[in-house]
Amino acid sequence: MTDTDAALGAHLDGLRAALATRADDAGLLDVAYRIVDSPVGQLLLAATPTGLVRVAFERQGFDAALEAIAAAVSPRVLEAPKRLDTVARELDEYFAGARRGFDVPLDHALSRGFRLAVQQQLPRIGYGKTETYAEVAAHVGNPRAVRAVGTACATNPLPIVVPCHRVLRSDGSPGGYAGGPEAKVRLLELERAA
């Protein structure tokens, strides 16, 4: 890469940032997103003015996640990292073992009904603790809905922040996870080590 190419790249980055700021300031930006690095791989973070609406693992496909957000929330989606600074900072603190819960506002626009009820229950599972799918089903008032709890965890649009990784099978095995079984085990180990 030449100095000219580097200067052009920096100039384009500055233009993109200015566009994102102007769009946000003018109320034209419905969904801002950014990609961050983490110990479990790159994560896509997306937020509406209401709050964090999506956390996606790279293996889920960032383009697919953005397309789903555009279809369900708004097509006015733009890479605008500034709106997600607080989320990124809280995730960094979490991965460093300095944060046990998240304080960022959440936008539950991608969940409804029983799935939403389950996802709202998940933050009540304490840091470093786990529950079974059956225990979560009982907590949300439907003890026989174990499979539905599994589906609610599998479709959780806010993994890590809404800790579906803390839900295990009745035999204590991790079960599935959107970020892959290795990511689920890594998150559990991180929390147990703190």
Rank of each mutant, 00 (worst) to 15 (best):
M1W: 07
M1Q: 10
T2S: 15
D3A: 15
D5C: 02
L8F: 13
A10I: 00
G14K: 00
A17N: 06
A17L: 07
A17F: 01
L19V: 07
T21M: 13
D25G: 01
D25V: 03
G27K: 08
L29D: 04
D30K: 00
V31K: 08
R34A: 13
I35K: 00
S38H: 05
S38V: 11
S38F: 08
V40T: 11
G41H: 11
Q42Y: 00
L43Q: 09
L44G: 03
L44H: 01
L45N: 06
L45W: 04
A46P: 05
A47N: 04
A47F: 02
T48R: 01
P49H: 11
P49R: 09
T50L: 13
V53P: 07
V55E: 07
F57N: 11
F57P: 06
Q60R: 06
G61H: 07
G61C: 03
F62E: 02
D63Y: 01
A64Q: 12
A68Q: 15
A68H: 15
I69D: 00
A70C: 01
A71W: 03
S74K: 05
S74P: 08
S74L: 10
R76M: 01
L84E: 05
D85N: 13
T86G: 08
V87H: 05
A88C: 14
R89G: 08
E90N: 13
L91I: 10
L91H: 09
D92H: 13
E93L: 15
Y94M: 01
G97L: 07
G97R: 02
A98M: 00
A98W: 04
A98T: 03
P105Y: 11
P105R: 03
D107S: 12
L110I: 06
L110W: 09
S111I: 05
R112V: 15
R115M: 05
V118W: 04
Q120S: 13
Q121C: 12
Q121R: 12
I125G: 04
G126Y: 12
T130W: 02
T130M: 04
E131S: 14
Y133V: 12
Y133T: 14
A137P: 10
H139R: 14
H139Y: 03
V140P: 04
N142M: 14
N142P: 00
P143G: 14
V146H: 06
V146P: 08
V146G: 04
A148W: 09
A148I: 02
V149R: 07
T151F: 08
A154G: 13
T155W: 02
P157D: 03
P157C: 08
L158V: 07
P159E: 03
I160E: 06
V162H: 05
V162W: 05
S170N: 08
G172S: 09
S173R: 14
P174G: 13
A178P: 14
A178W: 10
G180N: 11
G180A: 08
P181T: 13
A183E: 09
V185N: 10
R186W: 11
E189R: 14
L190I: 04
E191W: 10
R192W: 05
